[in-house]
Amino acid sequence: MKQVMKLAAASTVALGLAVSPATAAGELFLYNWTDYIDNTITDKFTKDTGIKVTLDTYDSNETLLAKLKSGATGYDLAVPSQNFVDIMIKEGMLIEVDVKSMPNYKHVADAFKKPSWDPEQKYSSPYQMGTTSYAVKKGSGAGQCASLKEFFEPNAAAKGKVGVFKTPEEVVNLAHIYLGQNFCTEKTDDLKAVQSLLQGQKSSVKVFSSEGTMDRLGDGVTLVSNAWNGDAMKRRLKDDTIQYCFPKEGVVGWFDSLVIPKGAKNVENAKTFMNWLMAPENMALLSNFANYANAIVGSDKYMTKDMASSPEVQVPSVPVKFGKSCGPKYTKAIDKIWTKLLQ
């Protein structure tokens, strides 16, 4: 009985500790992709500004949107891709911040100063950019990075050894590229072709997941896998057994931005983070961790040798097509294809 009392006392103490005041300069709740930032960056931010960062993670743009829509508000910053920034602006989910007026905005490369999804830069500041494609396990006979065929219609060696992302957006866009279709196509024939392509691929699929994909590939659980370039590079640097592919048909490009969702409690701290990250040395730190390119002029000075010579970052002469936000009809059709696929 006494021990029980002690236990009770211990939890009361824990409770007391928990409600003690947070750090003076305040906090920042960051909602980010898995493995897209680490504490070398957040610790430096805390050191520079005194603001403490708390991180939660998600695995796809779809999950982010669903979570924010379902009332999981209170996040001060999120990191959607360009097409989802567009959706969130249209749905009135973001707080206006006027990124243009921030001191470090001057470092943003001219080419990225009028992005089509947020031309006035009222809501979003640059985070990282990269491509979506697939990667192969070297020497497995599963592919030579020649064509998206290796991913969508895998050969005998890769049968049952394909890894595919868990949510449809990027997979379907890759399929559109492979089939030579336009993004957001609402044509019945196009959608049917996508559906039968993915259905055919499924018999070779080992796992649908967007996280830990490159470790699975490196360990040989999969031999062909959906991949983001930075993720693939991270694993390649470890043991050089995988190759990120730029197939001849092209790859999907994306540009991730920082945005402040409505309901954010620490808007000023979020703005501080946006501005802080646009400084070349900080953005370089992020690129060195995540292994993606960025839109900040002068950040390359601070980047590692690996980044400067990365074959994953330098896109060879294949088309890069950026995903757009599509209409509800298309969205519904894709959802149907996906649910049918996972049934």
């Binding site: 709740f29 708390t54 939660d56 993670t57 009332g71 999981a72 508000t73 209170g74 996040y75 001060d76």
Partner: peptide, 13 residues
């Protein structure tokens, strides 16, 4: 929601 991650949620992540 934001900042209310519990241990099982952290483990799941």
């Amino acid at each position: 929601g934001a900042g209310s991650t519990t241990l099982p949620l952290y483990i799941y992540g």
